[in-house]
Amino acid sequence: MNILVCLSQVPDTTTKIAFSADNKSLNKTGVQYIINPYDELALTKALELNEATGGGTVTVIHVGGADAEPVLRKALAIGADQAVRIEAEPLDSRQVAAELAAYIQGQSYDLVLTGRESIDYNCGLVGGMLSQYLDWPLVNVATSIDPAGQAGVLAVSRDMDGGREKVEVSLPAVITCQKELTEPRIPNMRGIMAARSKPLQVVSPQGIGPDLSLLSHALPPARQACRYFEADQMDALVEALRQQAKVL
């Protein structure tokens, strides 16, 4: 299969978040960027699928500035065959999805994988929007993806409210990836060397605008100091949860 994996780069999970003086953007001082954890799973799954079915290419794509190239190189070191970067500075999921869709329409991919959500803006919208732009079926929040035994069909488990279901989907399709799908691969020395000579193509954007306008960021309100109870004061704790917090 020819598989396209959409990668976003996000602040490392241990990042302490602070905003710029005008609260319009993240204060990037000292922030380490990583491949969005779900996208890393998507990439590993793409490699595994092609190893199992014997063939095809894995392309990674990112919509964003040149500062994301280390992340794309890492994906090449993990095993992707080629990378594409669409030269835009997207402000919301709509812009990302529209740019991706315009690119994909000129290509011939069998499968597009995205993460369930990016852990910076936590929207989980790009995959859904993309599936509608392309008019391809969507399997959201997949926990397993396997060849279904007939060409052009995959068997996918997906989370739903209160359970899980297994579906067969005909390709081409968009699948968004959830943990449990696989374990992320770590690049080895050979991969890192090979990545240097793999193609990284830069594509011009369509110039599609965002939907939303950001007014400001803020830190969540500080919590009150913790009120402590001894192990033998559980009646008092229950009383506080009932009368003070009103949550019981």
Binding site: P11, T13, T15, K16, I17, F19, L26, I119, D120, Y121, N122, D211, L212, S213, L214, L215, S216, H217, A218, L219, P220
Partner: peptide, 13 residues
Amino acid sequence: TVYSNKGLATYQV
């Protein structure tokens, strides 16, 4: 909420 509950963002729609 953004940045996994570590921030809030206000938008005009």
